[in-house]
């Protein structure tokens, strides 16, 4: 089997997964009891008002057609109308079909913010964790390795909000170096934005670095035990050359895998951290919408998170396939 067909197969599987996940998310939300129009109006629900809102939001149509409308919309970046916004706009007498209450307008800037936060984290975390991981593998069972082991284990075990509050305490309250609230808005300069993002990014870095470093260490140790590394050493090569020429090309696949997996892990971590720092990202929006049961927004956020997660895992798989000489050069 050629490498292209393997990758295409994997891509196809990814798309299928995405499709099935969208069904799960849509169905899960439709398991809600009662009617949303009723829930929205609460005490003031009259049959006419309920019917009006249902028609307005399209809740009276069959579930399959609603699903496909939603899916097609979602594929174009249109996730429908936010219930909370619809309610509000109906109250102020505006037409809910106007662009004002659409989920997409709410989501887009926050999505950009979250991507910014994740990128800053990745830029800090990836080099640090790879260097520490490789050093720990090279000097395994040394004092350095043991200290790194205990501290990363501690960092992995701690909830994200614990790490966040410790950082706030040290870097914002006791030594006012960084702001503890990340109120980001349009028109801020990159520098200001970075300054506000630094504390949440550092929190995520601490958690993700620990994971990444441990996985890198395990991958490298596994690699160093292989007979071809022993062979390289027995050829009298310098330790540096053994690492660079013989270990690294083979370590690429596991390391890429580690990085992609941890970026996927960031997605979960982002929710809690954004809430702690009141960072206006998608995670914060998600939690707020969950609390007020704003279904279209919850659906959209879920879909965005799941897609990112699936895509990163897909990326890890494909990179691993590409870096494997057995698959790149068939017999």
């Amino acid at each position: 089997m050629g490498i292209l067909s393997i990758i295409l197969k994997r891509l196809g599987l990814g798309v299928l997964t995405l499709f099935l996940v969208s069904i799960i998310i849509f169905m899960a939300v439709n398991m809600l009891p009662g009617d949303f129009a009723q829930a929205l109006l609460g005490q003031a629900a009259t049959p006419e008002a309920v019917a009006a809102i249902r028609a307005d939001l399209g809740l009276d149509r069959p579930i399959a057609s609603r699903y496909f409308d939603w899916l097609i919309g979602a594929a174009r970046g249109d996730f429908g109308t936010s219930f909370a916004q619809a309610n509000f706009s109906a109250y102020v007498g505006e037409n809910s079909s106007s662009n004002y209450g659409s989920v997409a307008t709410q989501l887009a800037p926050r999505f950009a913010n979250t991507v910014f936060l994740a990128s800053v984290t990745a830029v800090i975390a990836i080099p640090i964790s790879l260097i520490i991981g490789i050093l720990a593998a090279l000097y395994r069972y040394s004092v350095f390795d043991r200290v790194a082991n205990v501290s990363t284990l501690t960092s992995i075990s701690s909830p994200e909000f614990f790490v966040a509050y410790i950082l706030i305490l040290v870097l914002a309250v006791l030594n006012p170096l960084l702001p503890s609230l990340s109120n980001i808005f349009d028109g801020m300069s990159f520098g200001e934005r970075l300054e506000k993002t630094l504390l949440p990014a550092l929190t995520l870095t601490l958690v993700v670095t620990a994971h990444m470093m441990r996985m890198t260490r395990a991958a490298i140790i596994n690699l160093l035990a292989s007979p071809y590394i022993e062979m390289a050493r027995l050829k009298g090569l310098s330790p540096f050359r053994v690492i660079v020429v013989h270990a690294l090309p083979n370590a690429l696949a596991p390391i890429i895998n580690v990085v992609a997996l941890n970026l996927a892990y960031l997605i979960t971590g982002v929710v809690v951290v954004e809430v702690v720092f009141v960072y206006p990202g998608i995670g914060q929006l998600f939690v707020d919408s969950v609390k007020i049961r704003d279904i279209p927004v919850v659906q959209a956020c879920c879909m965005v998170f799941a897609s990112a997660y699936i895509l990163l895992n897909l990326l890890a798989d494909i990179m691993a396939i590409l870096s494997n000489p057995r698959l790149r050069m068939p017999k």
Binding site: S226, P227, Y228, E230, M231, A232, L234, K235, V245, H246, P249, N250, P325, R326
Partner: peptide, 16 residues
């Protein structure tokens, strides 16, 4: 001094 290992398949680096 050179060395010939038992498992040649594992002792050649798969990437080169």
């Amino acid at each position: 001094i050179a060395y010939v290992a038992q498992s040649a398949a594992a002792s050649f680096n798969p990437s080169h």
